[in-house]
């Protein structure tokens, strides 16, 4: 049934709502105050940094049509890295890199005595496996989608460096608890490294800080594991993401732009 629109009944003049007189506006409620404070705080920062443009560019840039769940693997890797960073900071509060007695005992103390110590250590241990799996899956995604092609070649190369650094993290971290498995697996690992032609033996002397495993070796692994490589990873992830934001993520390879959009683009 079609709707019939009736004209509104006339309203007497006295009942027509009138605009408020100037100066009698409603009192600002606590919500308005909060909103105002927020806005002025952001304004204050923006006035001094000019950052809101960049933030808007980052957050409101468009992501191509057809982007699917496979595109979350990169940020999931980054999230695993952040989780490693946070749990690692807590582990570092208790860890002592001294094989003469400190290292193993400090990990045992952390595992058995400290509140939630074993839990945080477990998260760091299994988080490493999760990060390795995610970085491989993310690489597989970019490979099969041809995302390493023009113009993203450089980002692929940065990605390979990130992959290698992730494995270096796994290798250097494995020694730190200094239990039997950690020690002997690392001895074998370093020996494998030593079979490299020419540079192998020199590289080994550097990694071990001499011809034998000593307390300096452990300290060296520790500082590589918690300063050098994480720093490099963080910086390179920054570069990786900057390039992603600047170039935009690829559309899935089977997506085609439809013609309407094409015309719009031509005009623009």
């Amino acid at each position: 049934m079609p709707k019939v629109k009736l004209p509104k009944p006339p309203v007497p003049d006295a009942l027509v709502p009138r605009p408020k007189r100037p100066g009698t506006a409603e009192k600002a409620g606590p919500r308005d105050v909060a909103k105002e404070t927020g806005i002025s705080a952001i304004d204050w920062v923006d006035e001094r940094t000019g950052m809101s443009g960049a933030a808007r560019w980052l957050m409101f840039r468009k992501v191509p049509k057809g982007t699917n769940w496979f595109y979350t693997l990169g940020s999931a890797t980054m999230f695993a890295f952040l989780s490693q960073a946070v749990t690692g900071v807590f582990l570092a509060m208790y860890y002592i890199p001294d094989p003469a007695g400190g290292a193993y005992e400090s990990v045992r103390y952390l595992t058995n005595e400290v509140f939630l110590g074993e839990f945080v250590r477990g998260m760091h241990k299994w988080g490493a496996s999760v990060m390795v799996i995610l970085v491989m899956l993310h690489m597989a995604r970019t490979f099969f989608f041809g995302a390493y092609k023009y113009p993203r070649e450089l980002n692929w190369i940065i990605g390979v460096v990130l992959l290698v650094l992730t494995f270096v993290m796994g290798f250097t971290g494995y020694l730190l608890p200094f239990d039997q498995k950690a020690y002997w697996a690392t001895v074998v690992g370093v020996n494998i490294n030593g079979t490299a032609p020419i540079i192998g033996p020199y590289l080994n002397d550097f990694i071990r800080a001499g011809p034998d495993f000593t307390s300096t070796t452990l300290a060296r692994f520790y500082s590589i594991h918690m300063l050098l490589v994480p720093g490099a990873l963080a910086a390179l992830i920054g570069a990786h993401l900057w390039l992603v934001a600047k170039q935009g993520t690829t559309a899935p390879p089977w997506m085609k732009a439809d013609k309407k959009g094409d015309v719009g683009e031509e005009r623009a």
């Binding site: 980052l58 840039r61 992501v63 191509p64 935009g248 690829t250 732009a257 094409d262 623009a268």
Partner: peptide, 22 residues
Amino acid sequence: YSTLKNQGKPFFPYAVAKDSAM
């Protein structure tokens, strides 16, 4: 690519929501 991008959705909140779920 630039056409496909123009036909897409903004990063915030669409991609951010998926990434957060992940």
